[in-house]
Design a protein around this nucleic acid. Sequence first.
DNA 1: GGCCTGTATTGACGTTCATTGATGCAAGCT
DNA 2: AGCTTGCATCAATGAACGTCAATACAGGCC
Lengths: 124, 124
Amino acid sequence: MSKQELEVLGQDAVCCPGLSAAPLDEDQAADLAKIFKALGDPVRLRLMSMIASRGQGGEVCVCELTPAFDLSQPTISHHLKLLRQAGLVDCERRGTWVYYWVQPGVLDKLGAFLTTARPGGAAA
Amino acid sequence: MSKQELEVLGQDAVCCPGLSAAPLDEDQAADLAKIFKALGDPVRLRLMSMIASRGQGGEVCVCELTPAFDLSQPTISHHLKLLRQAGLVDCERRGTWVYYWVQPGVLDKLGAFLTTARPGGAAA
DNA sequence: GGCCTGTATTGACGTTCATTGATGCAAGCT
DNA sequence: AGCTTGCATCAATGAACGTCAATACAGGCC
């Protein structure tokens, strides 16, 4: 069910000594921007939060997500697809229902990317 | 020079036990989405990285940022404005030049927001 | 004063995005 | 088989976004 997903933050990743470590080159910036863009929408952020709240290994059925919004079902499905394509979540169909979970480690890696200080030390 | 800026992540903040702590309500999600949206563009991400690379207390002159891109000066100015409005950076004019720096603490708070595990523990 | 440099703002244009109703597909049930 | 439910995809529309040229503003220098 998963499609082509980004893998910028993985072990095998292209990227990421940290935002503050050194100026990003264009490719790194483009890949990472897709992830942040995926989080840059209130609906997707809430979806992400609802899924992540289940903790590691936790799953949420789409049927629990959709009614939490005043939006049509296709819209929610669309947002979930974007989160998937950003590599933030993954999903699996089990019988009638589809379950989503947070891709393990992504949030930690993203957080570390923002937090990690540059090697040098203080100011220039 | 600064205008109205977001303050969702501050001490006085509305928000943020963490993305995974509990489902975000609409207001929290809307405020945080603006911040992620600001980072969700390759140009702004590179700008952010260039500024942040100067370390805490470090500053960058716009005249150093603009030539790093194949974009017009107004476009860079526009992106810097969005970063400012998201509360990620601030700036000051000194003589002819304008200097930008990262709003202290924002990156750490954002990172913590993503990383912080929920109080409960593991899965549901 | 006038001129020049650096930066922000404005207005316009093309592209991308969020949203919807309609439709399609998968799986369970009778 | 047919019906029903849950979710994804498609096609269309309006809004938001990124970009630029032109312009305006601020400060230094003559």
